[in-house]
Each structure stands twice: as C-alpha cells, then as structure tokens.
C-alpha cells in the first residue's frame, strides 16, 4: 500500500511538468503581451514597443523562452513575477490561498452535508412525490449558471434585504453568499449521484441480509447501503473539490474575493504570463493531489480495492526480484 502511495505521489511530477509546458505553449499563442498592452496606452511608437519587447525577450524563439521558463521554474523554484505589480507570483499565490481555501472548504462542507442526505432520502423514497420534487429541483439547480445565481442572491440578500455584504472580504458574513452560490450546483450534483448509487445498492442481497438480521432501516441504509454506494459519490465530490481548490474564478470575480481564481482572471486580462502560468500550475497540482486523495479514499472504503493496490505493487516487486 505504501508503495502504491509513493508511486502515485511520484506520478504527480510528470503531470506538473507536462502541464507547465502546455500552459507556456498556450500562453505564447495568445496574441498581444503585457508590454504592448501597457505601452500602447502611452504615446510610445511601434518601434519603441518593439524595442522593449526585444529587451524583455518576447521576440526570442519559442524554445528558448520555454527553456528559460522551465529552468527558472524547476532549477531555481522561481515562478516569475507579475509584470504589472512586480511582486513575485509565488508570494501572491500564497497570500491568496487562504481566501480560496475558505471558500472551497465552506462550499464542499455545505455540499456534502446537504447533498448526501438529500440523495439518500430520495433513493429510499424512490418514485414518491418528495423524490420527484427533489430530482426536479436538483436538476434545475444543477443547470443554473452560478454567476447568475450569485447575482440574484446579491440582489435579494444584499440590495433588497440588506442582510449581507455584496462583495469584498472581511468577516464570516462575506463568505455566506459566495459559499451558497458555489454549493448549489454541487449539492444538486452530489444529491443526484448519491441517489443513483444508493438506488443501485439498495436492491442488493446483502441489504436484505442486513434487514433480516433485524437492523433498523436507518442502520441498514446508512451503515450497509450508503457506504457501498459511496465510490461514485466520492469521485464526484473529489471533482467538485479539486475545482474549488483551484479557485472558483466566476464566484471570486463576482464577489471581488482576492482568491487564486480572480488572480488568474486578472492575469489573463493583463496578459500577465507569469501570473497565469503560476495560477494554472497551482490548479493542476491541487487537482492531482485531490484525485490522489480520492483514490486513497477508495481503498479506505473498499477492502477489495485496497487489496488490488497492494497486489499490483507486490506483483511488480516479485517481477523485479525474479529479473
């Protein structure tokens, strides 16, 4: 098992490497660059702009620029600095992570605590009116764009009722609307996934066995049926969570929260290469880590998967010894 974990952690390295090359390539395809954008607002001539671009190395061949970028990133651990503000990207990201984390953890907590029970209740009463209502509303909420929902929430709670702040950071109250806007889709997604997996498990023989032991229906569902249907649910929670940790771009922009997502959007608008690349690297990294945690949770939930992990590394070991 520990071999498996080590292997999976090492696998993150090539993923990040490939992602950094890809991001750099894509960013080079984007027309215009920070120097052009800034200098075209001044009275600089085309020749002056071109000279400044030469000096900044923007006119070097692609491979040279890529080489420099990778060298700085991996040999010196330098993610570069923002062209606009001049502050190092790494420091910027670190200062913005707490906001993104608070938003992500808050949203996922709400989504899981509401989504799973909602899905289970729906599955237990499959076909009933309450089940059909739940499915109808979750489908609706799932299809609702979150920026639109965010704006509606702001109109209602901030402008009309004047209960909550419209944007910015501060106390806990600043996170309430963003968390709601962020969770609604996830609650609906998780509820639908939970319902589907529990429904699949609930007709299993071992659930009948659990009932025939005299266990209360509540115990049968929560202790026997749900854990067996949890794997697809964990997968979808992992997906949501990974995306949230990478920064909820739309929501952070809507509520002017200084998180990783809004940092990246600003970077894109300013063609601030290093900022965008830094933020993208963070997204790739945190997504890979989340997926690793999800895979480990599978093993934690299902002993058969754990045995598989252990077996696959044992087989390799045996092969190596034989060779």
């Amino acid at each position: 098992m520990s071999r498996y974990v080590t292997k999976r952690i090492l696998q993150i390295i090539p993923i990040i490497l490939v992602v950094s090359v890809l991001i750099f390539a894509i960013m080079s395809l984007v027309p215009s660059d920070p120097i052009t954008i800034i200098m075209s607002q001044t009275s600089a001539t085309a020749e002056e702009i071109e000279a400044a671009r030469d000096a900044a190395g923007y006119n070097d061949p692609f491979l040279v620029r890529l080489g420099n970028y990778l060298k700085n990133l991996y040999l010196h651990g330098d993610m570069g600095k923002s062209f606009k503000t001049g502050s190092p990207v790494f420091k910027d990201l670190m200062s913005r992570l707490p906001v993104t984390f608070r938003l992500a953890f808050g949203s996922i907590l709400v989504s899981v605590l509401l989504g799973i029970p909602l899905g289970v209740l729906s599955a237990v009463r499959a076909g009933s009116l309450s089940d059909r209502m739940t499915m109808f509303f979750t489908l609706m909420l799932n299809s609702m764009p979150n920026f639109w929902l965010a704006l509606m929430l702001v109109i209602l709670f901030s402008l009309k009722l004047k209960l909550l702040p419209t944007n910015g950071i501060g106390g806990l109250e600043h996170y309430i609307l963003p968390v709601i806007a962020n969770s609604v889709g996830a609650v609906a997604g998780i509820a639908r996934q939970t319902r589907a997996s529990v429904l699949e498990v609930i007709r299993s023989d071992f659930v009948s066995t659990a009932r025939s032991k005299g266990l209360k229906e509540r115990v049968v569902i929560w202790k026997h049926a749900l854990p067996n249907g949890l794997i697809p649910v964990i997968t979808s929670i992992g997906g949501f969570f990974g995306r949230l940790l990478g920064g909820s771009m739309v929501i952070e922009m809507t509520f002017s929260l200084p998180g990783v997502g809004s940092y990246m959007i600003n970077g894109i608008n300013n063609r601030d290469y290093d900022c965008v690349q830094g933020a993208m690297l963070w997204i790739a990294f945190i997504f890979a880590v989340t997926m690793l945690v999800v895979d480990l949770l599978y093993a934690f939930i299902d002993p058969r998967i754990k045995a598989q992990y252990a077996a696959s590394s044992a087989k390799k070991k045996a092969k190596k010894e034989a060779a």
């Binding site: 299993s204 023989d205 071992f206 009948s208 066995t209 659990a210 009932r211 025939s212 032991k213 005299g214 266990l215 026997h224 854990p227 067996n228 939930i301 299902d302 002993p303 058969r304």
Partner: peptide
C-alpha cells in the same frame, strides 16, 4: 426485534449475501 433473533434467514447466493466492505 423478531428478525435475526426469533426468525432468521439463509440466502441463496452467498456471493452477494454478505456486505463486501
């Protein structure tokens, strides 16, 4: 209170009758 205590049942297919996890 009766199930599993006064009356219990053995199912046909042992492969699926036990909770796998």
């Amino acid at each position: 209170a009766i199930r599993g205590y006064k009356i219990s049942m053995i199912f046909q297919d042992p492969m699926t009758a036990l909770n796998p996890i």
